[in-house]
Design a protein around this nucleic acid. Structure first.
Lengths: 198, 198
DNA sequence: CCAAAAGGCGAACGGTCGTGCTTTTATTGG
DNA sequence: CCAATAAAAGCACGACCGTTCGCCTTTTGG
């Protein structure tokens, strides 16, 4: 890896941190240059437009998520244990233990882009969110064939439900600073599992 | 109402629409002046800083929410029917039928401010969100004393759960454009009620 | 109807934004 | 070690940001 790619990677890591707390809108080239102790133009040269920087940082965040949340969770046994592991890691991802200081990167960015006009950045975020939904549904489906969950349970509804729990957790812990947020999230998760169990 | 207050009110209505789609960050004085066919300085004079404009628009949105969602719902019979009415109206509020084109004003703004430093705007949003959570919990509590729900159910957990359903609905419908989003939300809501029923 | 007050406009300010250029400095391969 | 190449800096630009101020126009109360 040449010097260029090295700085580029470092810039993207810092950018992901910025976005997780300040949103895509708070990610500014000048600010990022300051943080990296680089000149605006020097940093700018690595991406050739702001949009490309944004796309790159979304992709970096997706990598980080795959690397620290998804991949480790996939090593747990299929079905319910894997679901538990994924949930657990997602909670830690959300509260900043695993990577980014501002909680879930995608929670911030999703809300920011939900009514935005179509574009490369939005598309990339949508695709990451779809992937995550599919992942949840698929793991749940596996749980059905493993005999952990009722065969008539709806995996996509389950994915919808658990996403709600996680969004509500993010909301309660980040915005409302509710100390019971994690307990509430775990309680809700257990209730979902109980309702799906055979 | 003098001419001044009249324009001010109209400006705030338009501002709320802008914020619901573009976020607080997308609310710019120049843009708002254009939309209102007013000069920047003329508009600015009504608020005397951007922060005061932001606080005012959050307050206006809270009024709108109370007027179109909360107050009508409170006229339904206590307990479960009231909860249903509130949920139903909140869904319509979220998809823009009731007021603002960009879906739930507070869903956008909450995510934007969750990691922001303390300030009047953030405080006002937090207080509105707390109020809404308390409202949900209280209506649920009433449902317990009316005998609709199990006495050992936890109203605050219920408020957490339902907020998750609504956030997931917002996410699915706005960002992912999932046509089944509303069905999923209603299914999830019914499941929550079923679990809480005697 | 007229004076006083309120509302609105136009121009200008210092800043920051994203984005080009050209030049200087580091890195690298032969 | 030196030439070729890559990376970073410096500087300038037009656009828009929030904000101020002085002037004009409209509304209002007596």
């Amino acid at each position: 890896m040449g010097k260029g790619e090295e700085t580029r990677a470092a810039v993207l890591d810092e950018a992901a941190r910025v976005v997780s707390t300040a949103g895509l809108n708070g990610l500014t080239i000048g600010l990022l240059a300051d943080r990296m102790q680089l000149s605006k133009s020097g940093l700018f040269a690595h991406f050739r437009s702001k949009e490309q920087l944004q796309v790159a940082v979304v992709e970096r965040a997706a990598e980080l998520f795959a690397e620290r949340v998804v991949r480790p969770a996939l090593q747990a046994p299929r079905g319910e244990p894997r679901l538990r592991e994924l949930f657990d890691r997602k909670l830690r991802w959300d509260n900043g233990d695993l990577a980014l200081p501002g909680g879930c990167f995608f929670a911030s960015v999703s809300a920011e882009l939900d009514d935005a006009p179509p574009g490369r950045v939005r598309d990339r975020v949508v695709s990451a969110e779809r992937d995550y939904g599919d992942l949840l549904a698929n793991i749940f489906r596996t749980g059905i064939s493993e005999g952990h969950f009722r065969p008539d349970a709806d995996p996509e509804q389950y994915a919808f439900d658990i996403r709600g729990v996680l969004l509500s957790y993010h909301h309660a812990s980040r915005l409302l600073a509710d100390p019971k947020a994690e307990d509430r999230a775990r309680t809700a998760f257990e209730a979902l599992l109980r309702a799906a169990r055979i």
